[in-house]
Simulated assay, not measured.
Amino acid sequence: MKRYRIALFCVAFVLAGWILNFASAAGPNAAAQKHIDIAKAAAYRPGHDLTALYETVCRPALTGKARDENPPAKDPAPGSTVLASVKVPPHSEWYFPPAKVFDNLYWLGSHADSLSTPQVFGNSTWAVKTSEGIILIDSGMNFSAKELITDGLKKLGEDPAQIKYLILTHAHSDRYWGSKYIQDTYKAHLIVSEADWHGIEISPDPTELKPKKDMVATDGMKLTLGDTTLTIYVTPGHTPGTISVLVPLKDGNQRHLGAVWGGINPNLYGHGVRNGPTLEAVIKTWSASTARFMDIANKAGADVYLTIHPGYDMALEKIRALPYRKPGDPHPFVSKDEVMRFLTIIKECGDAQLATLGSS
Rank of each mutant, 00 (worst) to 15 (best):
258 G>Y: 00
84 A>C: 05
103 D>T: 08
343 L>I: 06
240 P>H: 02
176 Y>N: 04
70 N>P: 01
112 A>D: 11
26 A>V: 04
353 Q>M: 12
327 P>H: 05
98 P>S: 08
264 I>T: 13
173 S>F: 13
161 A>M: 03
342 F>L: 05
49 D>S: 07
183 Q>V: 09
157 G>T: 08
267 N>F: 13
175 R>V: 12
49 D>L: 08
24 S>V: 11
189 H>N: 13
349 C>V: 01
14 V>D: 01
89 P>G: 06
91 H>A: 06
281 A>W: 09
149 I>L: 07
126 W>N: 00
292 R>C: 10
359 S>M: 05
211 P>G: 09
212 K>G: 05
25 A>V: 12
310 P>D: 04
79 G>H: 02
108 L>M: 07
351 D>N: 14
120 V>I: 15
193 S>T: 09
120 V>G: 04
227 D>M: 09
288 A>Y: 06
236 P>V: 08
174 D>P: 02
161 A>W: 01
166 L>T: 10
311 G>Y: 00
268 L>P: 00
231 T>E: 14
315 A>Q: 09
127 A>I: 00
244 S>K: 00
330 P>H: 11
283 I>G: 00
225 L>F: 11
71 P>W: 05
144 S>R: 07
303 D>E: 09
330 P>L: 09
132 E>A: 15
241 G>Y: 00
9 F>A: 15
116 S>Q: 11
210 K>Q: 14
285 T>G: 02
238 H>N: 14
150 T>N: 12
104 N>G: 08
115 L>T: 14
11 V>P: 01
91 H>Q: 08
208 E>S: 11
296 I>N: 02
118 P>C: 12
262 G>A: 04
33 Q>I: 01
181 Y>I: 05
173 S>I: 13
86 V>L: 15
175 R>M: 14
309 H>M: 11
72 P>W: 10
161 A>C: 01
103 D>R: 07
92 S>E: 14
76 P>I: 04
185 T>A: 15
66 A>L: 08
132 E>G: 08
19 I>C: 03
70 N>T: 14
276 G>M: 02
274 R>W: 06
71 P>L: 05
247 V>H: 01
332 P>Q: 10
244 S>P: 06
238 H>F: 11
118 P>G: 10
15 L>H: 06
259 A>I: 02
158 E>D: 15
8 L>T: 13
43 A>C: 07
133 G>M: 03
100 K>Y: 05
350 G>P: 11
344 T>N: 09
85 S>V: 03
357 L>A: 09
100 K>G: 13
309 H>K: 10
30 A>R: 10
305 Y>Q: 04
43 A>V: 09
12 A>Q: 12
94 W>C: 06
58 C>L: 05
160 P>H: 03
71 P>N: 04
224 T>K: 13
177 W>D: 14
329 D>S: 13
326 K>Y: 07
90 P>H: 07
289 S>C: 10
54 Y>A: 02
287 S>I: 07
325 R>C: 02
97 P>Q: 11
290 T>E: 03
50 L>E: 00
337 D>Y: 02
82 V>Q: 15
290 T>R: 03
211 P>K: 07
30 A>L: 08
